[in-house]
Simulated assay, not measured.
Amino acid sequence: MPETTLPRDIQSIAVASDALGDYLHQRGWSDQDVDRAVLSVSEAVSNSIEHGSGEVVLRYALEAEGLIIRVTDNGMGPSRQRLEDAALPQDPFAEDGRGLFILTALADVVTVLEDGSLTVTIRSTR
């Protein structure tokens, strides 16, 4: 499983997105599925930078159930209830508050492991 340690910096979102996009294109994923995965990793890394602590560790791999993306930092991660209740913000002009909603809408499965890492599963339609 490739692993990348990223600094808590906005540039890390692009680094993570580019790395995952290249990985999936090299393995024959369709542009649509790559876009879905890249947006998912972008939201997960962004969430980690915004709400977590310490370095951001990104791991991803293709496994039997699909693409597994794991984003870990030193924070607790969102609660399971927060994931289940993810919704758009009340104010349509709010500048933030859409990340978990987008992530749960794009991914087939989103979970938080005991160590607080956010794990995303995406199945390819190819």
Rank of each mutant, 00 (worst) to 15 (best):
A44Q: 02
V109M: 08
A44G: 01
A86G: 06
R8A: 14
D85H: 09
F93A: 14
R126S: 12
E114P: 15
S40E: 10
G54V: 07
V56K: 03
T4M: 15
V110K: 01
R8K: 12
A16T: 08
A107L: 05
I49V: 07
M1V: 05
V41M: 03
V38T: 14
E84C: 04
A86C: 04
E50G: 01
A16K: 06
N74K: 06
F101I: 01
G99S: 11
G116S: 11
S42P: 10
G66C: 10
L20A: 07
E3F: 09
S30C: 01
R123H: 04
Q26R: 15
T5N: 03
I13M: 10
Q32S: 10
A64M: 09
V120L: 04
P92E: 01
W29N: 03
A16N: 09
V120M: 04
A19V: 05
V34G: 00
I49Y: 00
V41E: 08
G99M: 05
T5H: 03
V45H: 01
L113T: 12
R59F: 02
V56G: 02
V112L: 07
Q11P: 09
G21E: 10
T104M: 06
P2Q: 09
A14V: 14
R82G: 04
R8Q: 13
T119Q: 15
R123K: 11
L67Y: 14
L24E: 04
E84Q: 10
R123S: 05
L62A: 08
